[in-house]
Lab assay of single mutants.
Amino acid sequence: GLEHMADEEKLPPGWEKRMERSSGRVYYFNHITNASQWERPSG
């Protein structure tokens, strides 16, 4: 619901949600550090 939507907005600075086109899996990418990970970043 709306709570989940708001929660997605609160990623740490630099992080954004991305989708891997080949598999459709969602991952997280940090455009500041060029880091990427499957787990939702905390902090």
Rank of each mutant, 00 (worst) to 15 (best):
G1I: 12
G1E: 11
G1T: 11
G1L: 10
G1A: 13
G1N: 11
G1R: 12
L2Y: 13
L2I: 13
L2Q: 13
L2T: 11
L2R: 07
L2A: 10
L2H: 12
L2F: 14
L2S: 12
L2V: 11
E3K: 07
E3P: 12
E3F: 03
E3W: 05
E3R: 03
E3G: 12
E3V: 13
E3M: 07
E3H: 13
E3C: 15
H4T: 12
H4I: 14
H4G: 12
H4F: 10
H4A: 13
H4S: 10
M5G: 13
M5T: 11
M5N: 13
M5D: 13
M5A: 14
A6Y: 12
A6H: 12
A6I: 13
A6T: 12
A6R: 11
A6P: 14
A6C: 15
A6E: 12
D7G: 11
D7K: 08
D7M: 12
D7F: 10
D7V: 12
D7W: 09
E8S: 10
E8Y: 07
E8G: 10
E9P: 10
E9S: 08
E9H: 08
E9F: 08
E9V: 07
E9C: 07
E9T: 08
K10F: 10
K10H: 10
K10D: 13
K10Q: 14
K10A: 14
K10R: 11
L11N: 01
L11Y: 03
L11P: 14
L11K: 05
L11G: 00
L11R: 01
P12N: 01
P12Y: 02
P12H: 02
P13L: 09
P13D: 10
P13H: 09
P13I: 08
G14P: 09
G14R: 02
G14F: 09
G14M: 05
G14W: 09
W15F: 02
W15A: 00
E16V: 05
E16D: 03
E16F: 03
E16N: 02
E16A: 03
E16L: 04
E16W: 02
E16Q: 05
K17L: 08
K17G: 02
K17D: 01
K17M: 07
K17V: 08
K17Y: 04
K17A: 06
K17Q: 07
R18W: 05
R18E: 03
R18I: 07
R18N: 03
R18T: 04
R18S: 03
R18K: 08
R18H: 09
R18D: 02
M19N: 09
M19Y: 15
M19V: 15
M19E: 12
M19T: 15
E20P: 02
E20I: 13
E20T: 06
E20D: 15
E20Y: 09
E20R: 03
R21P: 15
R21S: 15
R21I: 15
R21Y: 15
R21W: 15
R21N: 15
S22I: 14
S22Y: 14
S22T: 15
S22F: 15
S22W: 12
S22G: 15
S22H: 15
S22P: 15
S23R: 03
S23G: 05
S23N: 06
S23P: 02
S23F: 04
G24M: 06
G24D: 04
G24Y: 03
G24N: 08
G24E: 05
R25F: 04
R25K: 09
R25Y: 05
R25N: 05
R25E: 05
R25P: 01
R25M: 07
V26P: 08
V26K: 04
V26Y: 15
V26Q: 05
V26N: 05
Y27T: 01
Y27K: 01
Y27E: 02
Y27F: 06
Y27L: 02
Y27M: 03
Y27C: 06
Y28Q: 00
Y28S: 00
Y28K: 00
Y28T: 00
F29L: 03
F29K: 03
F29S: 01
F29G: 01
N30V: 01
N30A: 01
N30G: 00
N30K: 00
N30F: 02
N30I: 01
N30M: 02
H31R: 13
H31F: 13
H31D: 04
H31I: 14
H31T: 14
H31E: 07
H31Q: 09
I32G: 06
I32L: 08
I32R: 06
I32Y: 13
I32Q: 09
I32M: 09
I32H: 07
I32D: 09
I32N: 08
T33F: 05
T33V: 05
T33W: 05
T33H: 04
T33E: 04
T33D: 04
N34M: 12
N34W: 07
N34K: 14
N34C: 01
A35F: 10
A35S: 11
A35P: 01
A35M: 14
A35V: 15
A35E: 13
A35R: 14
S36P: 04
S36K: 14
S36M: 14
S36H: 07
S36D: 02
S36E: 10
Q37F: 03
Q37P: 00
Q37G: 01
Q37I: 05
Q37A: 04
Q37E: 03
Q37K: 04
Q37M: 06
Q37S: 06
W38D: 06
W38Y: 14
W38I: 06
W38L: 07
W38S: 06
W38M: 06
W38Q: 05
W38H: 05
E39H: 12
E39A: 08
E39I: 07
R40S: 07
R40A: 07
R40V: 07
R40G: 02
P41D: 01
P41I: 01
P41L: 01
P41W: 00
P41M: 01
P41R: 00
P41T: 01
P41S: 01
S42A: 10
S42P: 07
S42C: 06
S42I: 11
S42E: 08
S42W: 09
G43K: 08
G43A: 13
G43S: 12
